[in-house]
Design a protein around this nucleic acid. Sequence first.
DNA 1: TTGGGCTTTGTTTTT
DNA 2: CAAAGCCCAA
Length: 720
Amino acid sequence: MDLFEHLNPSQRKAVEHVEGPLLILAGAGSGKTRVITCRIAYLIRHVGVDPQSILALTFTNKAAGEMKERVKALLGSLGDKVWISTFHSACVRILRREIDKLGYSRDFAIYDADDQLSLIKECLVQLDLNAELYPAASIAEKIRSFKNQGRDPSSLPEEVLLFSLDGKAVQVYALLQKKLKANNALDFDDLLLLTLRLFEGCPEVLARYQERFRYLLVDEYQDTNPTQYRLLKLLTQTRQNLCVVGDDDQSIYKWRGADIRNILDFERDFPAARVIKLEENYRSTQTILEAAGAVVAVNRERKGKQLWTRRGPGSKVTYFQAADELEEAEYVCRTIAQLLAQGGYSGQEIAVLYRTNAQSRSIEEALQKARIPYRVVGGLRFYDRKEIKDVLAYLRVAINPCDFLSLKRILSVPPRGLGKAALDRITQQAQASTGGWPELFQELLEGEGLPGAMRERLRAFRQLLEELVRSAQSLSASRAIEETIRATGYDRYLAKEGGPEGESRRQNVQELVTAARQFELEAPEGLLKDFLDGAALASSEDVKDDPTGRVNLMTLHSSKGLEFRVVFIGGMENQLFPHARSMESPPLLEEERRLCYVGMTRAKELLFLTNAAKRRLYGTEMYNPPSLFLKSIPDHYLQRIDGLTAQRPALAGPTPSRPDLPANSGAKAFCRGTRVHHPKWGTGVVVEVEGEGSSLKVTVAFQQGEKKKLAAKFAPLRLI
DNA sequence: TTGGGCTTTGTTTTT
DNA sequence: CAAAGCCCAA
């Protein structure tokens, strides 16, 4: 098989590059996965590189899975020897072997964001910090940011900012790390950070991995954070064989610590770097590409690329202005129904994208009414469900006796007469004790002053845990889980809850057993420990794309990396998209533009943008002008449709003509949500309508923030 | 100790 | 508006 058969000249150059740093600037839909996988195959087959000396890093399990599959398709079983994994699981793999050098035990637990937050709340209580002044969520965000920047508490200036949020965050950070270590646990950010610390602090370990990984590939490089950057820099410092692939225009995770400078400064950081741009797009029509390109062209922080396609211009981008979110949803729904009925489209080829999850509601309701099947992508991870976390917490405690956070979680689930008082005893004893729960319970039960009832209950609880340790050590993952569910009475507990809620939770718990069985089929060892790692690092949509023809609903963020023949982007309004919190800050606004670019470039054939003049969100009404991004799109790429007047009963009033409006705007009227233009006040939205006929008065909220009550008969208002 | 009612708080969430 | 967290009464 010829590796180069379907490659264009730029892709080919990228694949053939062997030694030294390489930056592949891969535009949306430019075939970057093909390039990465072909390059891996090329290194092995044509250059004779040992598959074991290649490390390919991605951000998502899905991307890693796809890459593995395609490498295997090119190389057969030889492909299995290449390390292809997410940053986090690569770090777990390294740390499981080496972490004792940092004073942790190799049985460390992995804490997810929820666990991390619980621990931070404990810290806040312990430090006696006012929860009003220092909200746990904000502190958590700060700490994550510190960790993403590769900073330890000791490197941060605590004294200077003593009473600021930052200062307190530093304090909490220090205590959090202490607690994590006491629990023998790492949070997600620690997985990366401690691997960095390991390499920095143990040159001989670093040297071993440098020797092992002679070729590194990194996907989605624009999303790397400073910690990841330093990790890569260290691993590649002897050979400089670092190939990164990314698109600066698709950097949308700054708020998660990603630093776009990593990709922008690659040539400065690796002076020998070769840069290859992949600008031929195989996905979208020319119109879509150019309209999307216009939105990011405004940005200052970008390399600049000119995407092109062999596909024709295609249809114009449709821009629909709705009166409110109901009309918006109705329009989206009606258009989808038409595409399904006459357009030869199937639901799975269509996506509705939005900025915030709350927006899905109105779309969902409309789709339900029209009986169009859909699925909401993203949302709660399977392993984040309460019942799943509960069961897994038992197993975590069985494996890692220091995991007191999980112990706390299971203490009274199912209820067993142990509550706050018992928890206080345990926490108190934990301060004095050095070991895990076996020692702790021993000390507690030997000690004085324990109420008789509590003593008995604690003894029973300890016995339960001991039983679980035995099954965790001797049974397969799925059997151990089954045994846990039985021995703890968790299933009985859910059964007692009753109702459809309890029933679905029982099913989820069963599903967990099924997942473990599946895992045993795939993993040769089938170790419970490995299953727990997988559960910790799993994502919400590890389930394969479903082929059942449902329309896809998701946030713009979750759409990254996907493609659809038809894409709708709803809520194209200032304050919503760009989001209110980004509008005042130029760098954040640039990120929102990139997000818009990402969304638009998901579309292969048809792209619809919609906005609502009035929107009900979080129980309040908002009137927002159309997104400023729309102004960046040259008019000749847009087909404007205005639904306001088309299907509403016309109110009396003046009917100024509007020449540039399509045929569907026969009757003209003012109603709430109508967008109008006034020569003095500019554009605005009708908020209130009173009276009728010649005494019709309208209250208009103008874009500048002014609100005016005007007589429709006299005011020089023009409908737009 | 527990579950129910009350207040709070909402951008995005690859691992 | 609705879900999640928090506090208090039984």
